[in-house]
Write a protein that binds this DNA or RNA. Structure first.
Length: 287
DNA sequence: AAGAGGCCCTGATAGC
DNA sequence: TGCTATCAGGGCCTCT
């Protein structure tokens, strides 16, 4: 599912809902996520207060009382749902909640608050939860990641210097979180289209002007995607189960064989596999 | 060091 | 209808 804009959409609604709220209980249905949930997962969360929900790159950061953190990564198919608590059915002794959007399967974790609960759903289980005990460990956790595309650190000097003499193609660098952290397969293709740069170009061959275009266009498209509620291809839903709207703005992603949207261009969008991932581009506009 | 490729997992969809 | 193959927005690991 989620690249930076989608994670940011989740962060905003989650933060609004759980900020300053105390965790009452935790239910774990399946520990086998990308990384196995630690045995003390529930007790770590229980009785703690949520200070706020932050984000770095594609990671949600839950700030907990006592200076601890919980990182959440949604992987490819993770979603977080907020549902109202329902009373326990005394006859069957089961709790239930009604939400038309809550999937029936793969609801692995529930974090329960006073009147509602958040439910982590993830069919492919590429996502994970991870506890961080303090600031120092948090810094260390993100040390190997590059700057966020939206940050001031993602600037001309940084990009030009990083890509200098690199032989790998530029598309795969945009997906490389050590270079820039938060862009995924959709926004990599879209950024290169806006920048009129062919995804197969060797990163080291980019001019300073082209680097600038990539920086500006990645920021532009990510901000725009956030303002539209993110992109929904198949899995992405916000915390109330609604889809984002940015997929309507795709210029190249999933548009193979369709007409290029640049004014005056009569070419058709191509799809090629690069580094095991689909890449969409116009080989007439992108040189 | 840098780059290529495999793998974790389930579900939707296409093709026969 | 039902089988099989292919593909999916991520990131870690290993090998060269």
């Amino acid at each position: 599912m989620p690249e930076l804009p989608e994670v940011e959409i989740v962060r905003q609604s989650l933060n609004k809902k759980i900020k300053q709220k105390q965790v009452k209980n935790v239910i774990i249905r399946n520990r086998n996520l990308r990384f196995k949930l630690p045995i003390n997962f529930a007790s770590f969360f229980k009785k703690k207060k949520i200070i706020k929900v932050g984000r770095f790159s594609k990671y949600l950061i839950i700030y907990l009382s006592e200076g601890n953190y919980c990182l959440i990564h949604l992987g490819m198919s993770g979603t977080i749902h907020i549902v109202k608590n329902k009373k326990i059915n005394k006859i069957t002794n089961t709790s239930f909640y009604h939400s038309p959007f809550l999937p029936k399967k793969h609801n692995h974790i529930e974090i329960i608050f006073d009147t509602f609960r958040i439910i982590y759903n993830d069919p492919r289980r590429f996502g994970f939860f991870e506890f961080i005990k303090d600031d120092k460990q948090l810094k260390k956790r993100f040390k190997h990641l590059g700057p966020e595309p939206l940050s001031l650190k993602f600037n001309t000097a940084y990009v030009c210097n990083f890509l200098k003499n690199k032989k790998k193609n530029i598309k795969n660098f945009l997906l490389d979180q050590k270079f820039v952290s938060g862009i995924g397969n959709i926004y990599a293709s879209e950024t290169l289209f806006l920048s009129k740069i062919n995804p197969f170009r060797k990163a080291g061959s980019l001019t300073k002007e082209e680097c600038k275009k990539i920086i500006l266009n990645s920021k532009k498209i990510l901000f725009k995607a956030i303002s539209k509620g993110g992109s929904s291809i198949r899995d992405f839903k916000d915390t109330s189960g609604s889809r984002g709207g940015f997929q309507k703005n795709f210029k190249v992603y999933q548009r193979e064989g369709k007409k290029c949207k640049s004014s005056g261009c009569t070419n058709f969008i191509k799809k090629k596999i690069m580094g095991n991932r689909s890449t969409f581009f116009c080989d007439s506009c992108q040189k």
